[in-house]
């Protein structure tokens, strides 16, 4: 394949709450084997040498597993290819002469920090509310004490693959975090170890997501289409079932968490 040249139309924003705008930058003579982020590295070095400030973008592992990269490329979180993160997008996916828009995620719970970088700490707060099994180090029973059916473990792993990148919420017109919450709730809910806190977990995580400004799911599944790990929206149905069950139980329990005669 021959080298190509493209125009990058990049969102520039100096800081949180400040006005931003698109700026065009030429990216010339690109090796098709170059990754999209490496192209940004090269453009940034050129900007630096011209005395301009380079484009800020989030990245780290560059192999699709850390969940840091988070570009919206031509309107799609993580770009044109399915099942990959921004960092696994390559120049060969574009054509010579193409104009490529590059933007940050745009949703209120992930405010822009600078240029293409957003603050996704809202996802951490959802995890802190209940995305765990309470175990003190040292108190765990023998690992083979409780068998886990292979199919359950595999399905749990399908959900557990979530890299926490936020593309699901960014792709959703309602800015819903349902796929993210569903992945965690399903993973832990499928494991026998996760049963004790199952109700408490789903209620706390959903309520926290709502409180942080994420919207509701209206079943259009843009989330799973944008997910770099192709996590299925079927998990959202599982989340809904768990949530309804837990809500009912909570509603009919007059004094939750009380032992009679306590």
């Amino acid at each position: 394949m021959k080298n190509i040249s493209v125009t990058l139309r990049v969102w520039r924003q100096a800081g949180p709450g400040q006005p931003g705008r698109f700026v065009d930058y030429p990216a010339r003579d690109l090796n098709p084997a170059m990754s999209f982020l490496e192209m940004l590295d090269v453009v940034n070095d050129e900007l630096t040498l011209k005395g301009e400030e380079p484009i800020a973008f989030a990245h780290d592992c560059r192999e699709g597993i850390c969940g840091t990269c988070s570009l919206v490329i031509n309107g799609k979180p993580h770009g044109p290819r399915q099942g990959v993160a921004s960092c696994q997008t390559y120049v060969r996916s574009f054509e010579d002469g193409q104009v490529i828009t590059v933007e940050p995620y745009r949703l209120r719970p992930f405010p822009v920090v600078k240029d293409l970088v957003t603050d996704r700490s809202a996802f951490d707060k959802i995890q802190q509310a209940g995305g765990f099994i309470t175990v003190r180090a040292g108190s765990a029973p023998n690992a083979n004490a409780i068998p886990v059916p292979k199919d359950d473990a595999e399905l749990a792993m399908d959900a557990a693959q979530c890299i926490g990148c936020g593309a699901c919420a960014a792709a959703c017109k309602n800015a819903s975090a349902m796929l993210f919450v569903a992945a965690r709730v399903s993973h832990l809910g499928l494991m026998p170890q996760g049963q004790a806190e199952r109700d408490r977990r789903v209620l706390a995580m959903v309520q926290t997501a709502d409180g942080l400004g994420f919207g509701s799911c209206t079943n259009q599944y843009e989330c799973s289409a944008a997910c770099p790990k192709l996590i299925s929206h079927d998990f959202i149905a599982r989340l809904n079932r768990d949530f309804i069950k837990a809500s009912f139980k909570a509603a009919f329990r007059s004094e939750p968490n009380r032992v009679v005669g306590d």
């Binding site: 765990f132 099994i133 175990v135 180090a137 040292g138 108190s139 765990a140 029973p141 023998n142 690992a143 083979n144 409780i146 068998p147 886990v148 059916p149 292979k150 473990a153 595999e154 749990a156 792993m157 557990a160 993973h187 832990l188 494991m191 170890q193 996760g194």
Partner: peptide
């Protein structure tokens, strides 16, 4: 032991171990 208790979905055999 600790990781299994935390819900880490390790690979399993058909018997669940």
């Amino acid at each position: 032991d600790q990781c299994v208790a935390l819900g880490v979905p390790f690979a399993r055999e058909y018997g669940g171990l």
